[in-house]
Simulated assay, not measured.
Amino acid sequence: MSATRLLVLGVVRMHGKAHGYQVRRDLLTWSADKWANVQPGSIYHALKKMTAEKLLEQVDTEPGSGPDRVAYRLTKDGETEFRALLCQALSEPDPGGHERSAAIVLMTALPRDRVAGLLRQQLVKLEADERTAELLGAEGEDSGQPEHVSELFRLWQVQAGASVRWLRELIERLEAGEYRMADDPGRSFGEPPE
């Protein structure tokens, strides 16, 4: 999965319709180029590719002094793809962190219980990763590997442990009612206009 793909679908969805410059501006304003490695050129590529895949459709063109601006909106398949990518990114560990970061930004587009359940799935997998790294570290001393290799297993264990703690706290905050989610009164962040 690509964080760029999820974020582009999410921004177009959020606006109801959006042109490439608008998507680019939003993502750069959010600093997605830093935390999700979204490059400006990849945004335009994603728009064209997802239009060819029938996930987006061109709805109008705004003439201007420069190149015409093509506006896009999600198709029914685009909405399905957005939700599938969002659910996958919320439920699966992400070693690079780009997809998880994109999913956290857009998580309010789903109902609270759904997000908490998906995060619990990720939590179970991360707890297993943490335990595996712990076991590998203990084994490493007697495995015949150079002793400094055990530092790699310690790194994995610390990273998994930090992710486990953060996820537990996020789930608690969601269950306590923090953040306006899709099933709460009012419009949540990322929801399309009516």
Rank of each mutant, 00 (worst) to 15 (best):
D113R: 10
Q58S: 13
V23N: 00
D184S: 06
E191V: 05
Q122K: 08
Y72A: 01
L167C: 06
R5C: 01
S65A: 12
M1D: 03
E178F: 12
S31I: 06
D183C: 08
D183V: 08
R180N: 12
S31L: 09
V105S: 13
R69F: 06
E92N: 10
V8K: 00
L136Q: 15
A138E: 15
M50K: 01
R173T: 06
L106N: 05
V12R: 03
M50E: 00
V158D: 12
G78E: 00
W166K: 14
S42Q: 14
A116E: 04
K125T: 15
S101T: 04
Y179E: 12
E62Y: 07
V59W: 04
G177E: 07
M107Q: 10
E134I: 04
V164I: 10
L106F: 07
S101L: 04
S143T: 15
L152W: 04
E194Q: 06
A52G: 15
M181L: 11
P93C: 06
T61G: 14
A116G: 04
Q121T: 14
S101F: 04
F189K: 09
W35S: 06
G97N: 08
H19T: 08
L9F: 02
Q88E: 14
A46N: 06
E147Y: 11
A89N: 07
A36I: 03
Q58P: 07
Y44R: 05
L47F: 09
S91Y: 08
V23L: 03
R24P: 01
R24C: 01
M14R: 14
E92R: 09
S150H: 08
E151P: 09
Q159R: 15
G66A: 11
E194R: 10
R131W: 12
E169W: 01
G10S: 12
V23E: 01
S2G: 14
L170H: 04
A182F: 05
P95Y: 09
A162F: 14
E79S: 15
E57S: 13
P63L: 13
L174M: 09
R154Q: 12
D26L: 15
D26F: 10
S101W: 00
P192C: 15
L85V: 03
P111K: 03
L135P: 07
